[in-house]
């Protein structure tokens, strides 16, 4: 296995990680601030991708499509927060899971009703497509480098928002003691809607960015959602920094596990069987990582709560 291949795989892992971060950041904010388990987060990812595909098809502009994805997902997020989620903050986690699972079904069948059962077309714009040659002669798709860049910029922006702005102070205060900040005169329900919309917009952005290189179809959000939950558990619930580190860890583990585990098994097994066993084990790698982290730190890497 050459160095070039390994570097390329590390880049792939990073790219996957930063996209997971966009999903996980919203989830962890919502869980941290409001104590809500939102299974419908994957549906917001799908809403973003469909909005982007539709606008890109109508206007031909990828930037407009991204803007539409952000707006549509944020609007959908704010809408379900006001209509449904708001009633669930005091409910038990099981009720939240049940209600947000219902939202998944409503979003999926609603999307099928509007857009039909066949996948939509969304492609990378010409100015971002094709491979570039990196130092050392590595050929790598330009768009994936852009994704890594966008993810890092969003991470910086979120850090700035939570650490340096007034809204950020309120969000962090809300995580620690929601009664107290309500008593201090902060409109807590407006704050909740805002946080939910930000989380939804990030999921929508991820859906649109990833939709361009994957398939824009009903149910596309659910597989990502499961890994995003793994990420926030590893990172520590409520921590943006934890979500970022956790996402990179999961992205790298998942990608590199898929490559190296089959190779590892080939050292002492017959080739075909090694590929199958290695692939099966690679599918579990992220969950095994979560188990190890939880044994070592039961609240996650950056989890504050005990």
């Amino acid at each position: 296995m050459s160095t070039v291949l390994i570097i390329e795989q590390v880049l792939n892992g990073l790219q996957f990680g930063v996209m997971l971060f966009l999903m996980a950041a919203g989830l962890t904010l919502i869980f941290g601030v409001m104590g809500l388990i939102n299974l419908a987060h994957g549906s917001l990812y799908m809403v973003g991708a469909f909005a982007a595909a539709w606008v890109a098809g109508a206007t031909g502009s990828f930037l407009l499509a991204l803007a539409a994805a952000l707006a549509a997902a944020a609007a959908a997020g704010a809408l379900i927060e006001v209509l449904v989620i708001r009633r669930l903050y005091k409910a038990a986690h099981l009720d939240q899971v049940l209600a947000t699972f219902a939202l998944i079904l409503i979003f999926s069948e609603g999307t099928r009703y509007v857009f039909g059962s066949f996948p939509l077309f969304l492609d990378i714009p010409a100015y971002l497509s094709g491979p570039v040659t990196l130092p050392g002669g590595i050929q790598y798709p330009f768009y994936r480098l852009v994704l890594i860049g966008v993810g890092c910029v969003v991470a910086l922006g979120l850090w700035w928002l939570t650490a340096r702005t007034r809204v950020g102070i309120q969000i962090r205060a809300g995580e620690n003691d929601r009664e107290m900040i309500a008593a201090l005169g902060v409109d807590i329900s407006k704050l909740y809607t805002l946080v939910f919309a930000i989380g939804a917009a990030l999921a929508g952005l991820a859906g649109a960015l990833v939709g361009a290189i994957q398939s824009v179809q009903v149910g596309m959000g659910e597989p990502v959602l499961i890994l995003a939950f793994v990420v926030i558990v590893i990172g520590g619930i409520g921590s943006i920094r934890g979500a970022f580190i956790g996402a990179l860890l999961v992205g790298l583990t998942d990608t590199l596990g898929g490559i190296f585990l089959p190779e590892l098994f080939k050292l002492f097994m017959e080739s075909g069987a090694a590929t199958q066993t290695g692939s099966a084990l690679a599918a579990m790698a992220a969950y095994i990582l979560m188990g190890i982290v939880l044994i070592w730190r039961p609240t996650g890497l950056f989890g504050a709560r005990s």
Partner: peptide, 10 residues
């Protein structure tokens, strides 16, 4: 690959 996998960069 994994069933339902959506990223094939690796």
């Amino acid at each position: 690959t994994q069933l339902g996998q959506t990223d094939y960069a690796a």
